[in-house]
Nucleic acid binder design. Sequence first.
DNA 1: AATCGCCATGTGAGCGCTAACATCCGGTGC
DNA 2: GCACCGGATGTTAGCGCTCACATGGCGATT
Lengths: 326, 326
Amino acid sequence: MADVAQLAGVSHQTVSRVIHGSPQVRPQTRSRVVAAMEQLDYRPNPVARALVTGRSMTLGVVTFDTTLYGPASTLLGVERAAHDAGYFVSIVSVRSLDRASVRSAVERLRAQAVDAIVLIAPQSSAAPAFEELPAGLPVVAAEAGAGDAAPVVRVDQVAGAAEATRHLLDLGHLTVWHIAGPQDWPEAEQRVAGWRSALEAAGADVPPPLTGDWSPASGYELGRRLARREAVTAVFAANDQMALGLLRALHESGRPVPEAVSVVGFDDIPEAPYLLPPLTTVHQDFDAVGRRSVELLLAQIATGERPPSATVDSRLVVRSSTSAAA
Amino acid sequence: MADVAQLAGVSHQTVSRVIHGSPQVRPQTRSRVVAAMEQLDYRPNPVARALVTGRSMTLGVVTFDTTLYGPASTLLGVERAAHDAGYFVSIVSVRSLDRASVRSAVERLRAQAVDAIVLIAPQSSAAPAFEELPAGLPVVAAEAGAGDAAPVVRVDQVAGAAEATRHLLDLGHLTVWHIAGPQDWPEAEQRVAGWRSALEAAGADVPPPLTGDWSPASGYELGRRLARREAVTAVFAANDQMALGLLRALHESGRPVPEAVSVVGFDDIPEAPYLLPPLTTVHQDFDAVGRRSVELLLAQIATGERPPSATVDSRLVVRSSTSAAA
DNA sequence: AATCGCCATGTGAGCGCTAACATCCGGTGC
DNA sequence: GCACCGGATGTTAGCGCTCACATGGCGATT
């Protein structure tokens, strides 16, 4: 920077002003400085800047398993939004969402002097960690059931599940069975709640939900049980992976989908349109969750006030795994 | 730091020595300093350290689409390995792998003062960008066909494809058809090469490969074409997603898998064991690719020498989509 | 013509840390 | 008893930048 200043015949402060686009610089001076910067291939040192400003222009992301479609997409949304806002993104992945892991991940990020943190923590086991977040550091929980400790951005699971259930009811099915996700996942609970409320609103029976673990294997296992019951004509699976296993179980049991049994999933993974049959499912806009999270964080950085939680809409995508009841 | 020094009755330099575990500190002094650090909840400022050392302890990752299983898993592997080595991970995602995008992503990371970069760039269009990487900054290309501009870490696609093809040949199929990935993906080309060499080594006919775009839709499309040909009894799809579409096309065409046609995929996505039928496929250890990439980078940082490229083994996983020829 | 005020620029300090060198101390050798 | 040594500690000088304030020049105001 000193070299640039010298070459342009100005002080280092003027160079700094040019970098920041300050209006207090004569165009002529500015162009001289710009020329000097180019000639020397000068680029400002962000580390030095961060040292003095105390802001690193970096957002931290704590993520669980970036291999899962949801977290991976959310991460991507966060990165894009951060990028557009001129922020860098630093990630720390944790192997499990227990309190200690989340806490140490946050500590790591804090040590790295990030300006704000997005927690992608879709498990209630992470909730205790939210209670002990460092004060003063803006945090948003994405896809999480965070209690009230931090603002949350999430897809409206209840509405999505209710819409899926209503869709099946509208097709003439007397009731809808549910393969739920693990109980320590708020998303799973909210989907159960949406399913139950739609059933109750329609005056339909509420069969006991079966609980899986999100995996195709569990969907398959529970699907075999459901396939044995003749009365089952409509099933709402809490995610597409379990729906995948369910589809297989129904197929093997000689109960064609959608002729004998209608199936709705949740997530709309990229494979969903190509399953056998193409899966009717609830689309979640994870990218929007990521973007929205960043918006909240930037607002908090700007105003210092804790932003309210936000909800992103879900949308039922009807394909071929559902049809009218016999 | 000054506060800690004062509280412990030493100089800031001694505090620094304690932080670095220098042996030049008396145990008694050390414990006094440690106590002071705890009492004040002191944590070193990494930004200040980076400013003076010139090293940020951060690895940059340029990634294409973190939603895809391969890149997402590789990213995870990188993060874990970096974490274990005490490095932070900063990511920049690019919307497309053209030269300009990759270049600007690298610039961004460089501006952020990362110590090294992993490029997850599985497309040949990224290759030109490799030629103009800043000198002196350690770079490793993961899953890439980078020419010779940077060390590459990748799964041995050729061997994997050959193994898949041999598996089908060994089952008695006269030849094996291939649904290839897009031509500008080195991985796709290498899989074609492996498939071709296995066929030639066995003296089998080499049918013209069909080219898809990795998507289930393209696998479905090409699958419908293959289903019409009675002679087709074995197909090797260049990835599991296309295999998924292929499975659907064969099913709809009344050609049962594996009875009429055997299918092998590539990648071993988490859904593979739960497709109908469970998919025989080539497993890629993306996590290992990520870890290996970090190892090479750390070696380069330590020694200053450019490390050699590395290859990670693939492994055929036989499930139920393949069986002996009729 | 003297005063004011504003725009353009410069100066100095310091962010929190590390590297290099300086200093102090008790113990050793002769 | 004195020079000498090496381990433990302190001192000083930046790293590259921004912030707060100081300065100087010139047109507008009276």
